[in-house]
Design a binder for these strands. Structure first.
Length: 696
DNA sequence: GCCGCCCGACTTTTT
DNA sequence: GTCGGGCGGC
């Protein structure tokens, strides 16, 4: 959002300043939505609301966190601290913890996660069939999100399967009650029930939360909408409907999990005074990209008229390339990234194009694999977003820190994490002394460990522990270097975990045994994963005995540290993003590739389900979301042949490509020509800056 | 009843 | 390429 101007545009201003009644802000992609919300919070404070009386509701914890951060920049840490910035679910927890007893809930009710729920459903339905239980879970969650209980569910059940599910739901409800537990859906429906049936409690919450802002309102499901309504429907007419709902009907892509844009229609019906403000100026993308986006979305029936525009100029044409297959597509995507990096990156002082400027987006997770392979082969760093990466888990990051330390002794962040994971009597005091010492002598922490004069900086006791740690790392490194083959690697790694007492560490650090066990199981998966990569397994491959190449544990650790650049610095890692379209919503990149834009894939179509107009419209919105992620260049690639299961089928370009209404010339630009042109331009710039440099 | 192997499929995701 | 289900054998 670097191109967003300092001041608000007229529509944004109007949205910020309208406080007197219900307000719907239709925030197009890249139109400065979060700015409007945070400025509106500031405006509300100015108008006399106390921070604690303003609630900003989001869908994910991440969004809530970001919102609080952004608000903090504007209104200061003090006010930001007291704002109620929360997800629907955590607001629900808060309400139930405070007043759940009114519903007969114990004060310390437990919250069942989806695994717990699955187990309970198997009990309730007397079945050990995972898939069946999952289908029940899906159906029951759907009903709950429409605000139905088991009785009502049975009434609406359309077939035998659903009737069975409804009966399982009844027993499930009883079991939950017996356990004094709630599931995730209850975190919305129970607070709603509470506010509906208990005037006193409702009055209390309405007194507390006087103004409500909702982000991504197009993603609300029926029961979430109802909960909001019961919060803002104050009996006093003057205080009725004091809310701002922010959303974009064109970016509603969660219909399959109960979200309904029906809610947007309901808003204008149920709040006749609703002020609707459209934010149409886009600060993100070039004209060409926006025209493509508008072209696609124009094929959907419109709830509210809205058309994005930008004053950033036409920019590069949107490119469409046809590929022979998935591998070819991945190669071309990689080539395009390298071309753009080559063009911008090597120019002296020319603010190069960085890895984090690129994203490759696709419809389904499994499409990532072939891109990962191509990127690895090209030695380009990447991360796969969407579904929290295995490698983002605390326990895996712990172990990766150790591996990184083995690979590179001078990796200080890795050292710090490893030395205190688990705690081994080396405290912060010792570490900061060590850090100071290392800083003074300009050495790494690990190197400082063995310095003769360390005794001048660190007490003798601590030196003992430090040396012990250093010797252990040294020894482990030696063994890792000389251990090859899966079997031995596994033994080495398990020995290491035992040495450092990692399993115990997990149990100590985690309140719940169950969670600790889950973490340990991740660790075991990780060990297997590494061990497997050490090779040496005798495989029987179609009558032929194949022995795979053996690698040392250290070699494997090395590739891990290269590929997964787990910067301790956080998420400012400079890597290419691979993401599903769903997970990409709300994000942006200068250079975006939309991959696999084929009929059957996007719009997605499963064999045993026919395509309703509604489903197609949601797929179209998904395409729209994908297009509008791009700031400066957009590459759309389609497959002439694509894999489906074991066999290869003919690929048909997605109808959405035609809908982008690209000019023929625009679509036919050969990527190699483009590459040459970009290189020529880069060379020219480089030559010019060289000339400029010699003059200076 | 459990374990292991083989075959087939392979949306989207948060709390 | 991997995961999970189903089937077959012990």
């Amino acid at each position: 959002m670097s191109s967003v101007p300092a001041s608000l545009n007229p529509a944004q201003l109007e949205a910020v300043h309208y406080l007197g009644g219900p307000c719907l802000v239709l925030a197009g992609a890249g139109s400065g939505k979060t700015r409007v919300i945070t400025h509106k919070i500031a405006r509300l404070l100015e108008a006399g609301y106390a921070p604690g009386q303003i609630a900003a509701i989001t869908f994910t914890n991440k969004a809530a966190q970001e919102m609080r951060e952004r608000a903090k920049e504007l209104v200061g840490a003090r006010a930001a601290k007291h704002l109620v910035v929360s997800t629907f679910h955590s607001l629900g927890v808060r309400m139930l913890r405070a007043d759940g007893t009114r519903l007969g809930l114990k004060e310390k009710f437990s919250i069942f996660d989806s695994d717990d729920v699955l187990g309970l459903l198997k009990e309730a339905g007397a079945s050990s069939d995972n898939a069946l239980a999952r289908r029940w879970q899906w159906a029951i969650s759907g009903w709950k999100n429409q605000g139905l209980n088991s009785e009502q569910a049975e009434a609406v059940a359309a077939n035998d399967d659903e009737r069975v599910a409804a009966r399982v739901m009844k027993r499930y409800e009883e079991k939950l009650a017996a356990y004094q537990a709630v599931d995730f859906d209850d975190l919305i429906s129970l607070p709603h029930k509470l506010l509906r049936q208990d005037d006193e409690v409702r009055a209390k919450w309405q007194e507390t939360l006087r103004y409500v802002l909702v982000d991504e309102v197009q993603d609300t499901n029926t029961i979430q909408y109802e909960l909001l309504k019961s919060l803002v429907d104050h009996p006093d007419e003057r205080r009725r409907g004091l809310f701002t709902a922010v959303g974009d009907d064109d970016q509603s892509i969660y219909g399959w999990r109960g979200a309904t844009i029906e809610n947007l229609k309901r808003l204008s019906v149920e709040y006749p005074r609703l002020k609707v403000i459209a934010l149409e100026q886009n600060y993100r993308s070039t004209g060409n990209i926006l025209r493509a986006a508008n072209g696609v979305i124009a094929h959907n029936p419109k709830l509210f008229e809205k058309k994005l525009w930008s004053d950033l100029g036409d920019g590069e044409p949107v490119r469409v390339v046809e590929c022979d297959g998935e591998e070819h597509e991945a190669e071309r995507a990689v080539a395009s990234i390298q071309a753009l990096r080559g063009a911008g990156g090597s120019v002296a002082g020319g603010g190069g194009v960085e890895f984090k400027d690129f994203a490759i987006l696709y419809r389904a997770n499994h499409q990532a694999r072939v891109f990962e392979k191509a990127l690895r082969r090209a030695n380009l760093p990447y991360k796969v977003s969407g579904g929290q990466s295995f490698f983002d888990r605390a326990e895996i990051r712990d172990l990766c820190a150790w591996l990184r330390l083995l690979v590179n002794n001078d990796d200080d962040p890795a050292f710090l994490r490893a030395v205190s994971t688990p705690k081994r009597g080396i405290g912060t005091q010792t570490l900061s002394s060590l850090g100071e010492f290392a800083g003074r002598w300009k050495t790494s922490l690990y190197e400082a460990l063995f310095a003769e004069s360390l005794g001048t900086a660190v007490p003798a006791r601590a030196i003992g522990s430090l040396h012990e740690f250093g010797r252990y790392v040294n020894d482990l490194e030696y063994r890792a270097r000389h251990t090859t083959g899966s079997e031995d690697a596994k033994a080495l790694l398990m020995g290491w975990l035992k040495d450092i007492g990692y399993e115990q560490h997990l149990h100590d650090g985690e309140d719940s045994e169950k969670l600790a066990a889950a973490r340990w199981s991740n660790v075991l998966d990780f060990v297997d994963w590494i061990a497997k990569r050490c090779g040496g397994e005798i495989e029987n491959d179609g009558g032929m005995t194949v022995e795979t190449e053996k690698k040392s544990v250290l070699d494997v650790a090395q590739t891990i540290s290269v590929i997964i650049s787990l910067a301790e610095r956080g998420d400012d890692q400079n890597v290419i993003t691979l993401s599903t379209l769903h997970a990409a919503k709300g994000l942006e990149w200068p250079h975006v590739t939309l991959a696999g834009v084929n009929e059957g894939l996007l719009p997605f179509r499963s064999d045993d389900e026919d395509m309703t107009p509604e489903r197609l419209e949601e797929e179209r919105r998904l395409m729209y979301v994908g297009i509008t992620r791009a700031r400066t260049t957009l590459l759309v690639s389609t497959l002439r042949r694509r894999k489906k299961g074991r066999d290869t089928i003919q690929g048909v370009p997605s109808r959405f490509i035609k809908e982008m209404k690209l000019h023929e010339v625009q679509a036919k630009v050969d990527p190699m020509e483009k590459l040459k042109a970009l290189r020529a331009a880069a060379a020219e710039r480089a030559a010019q800056s060289a000339v400029a440099g010699s003059k200076a």
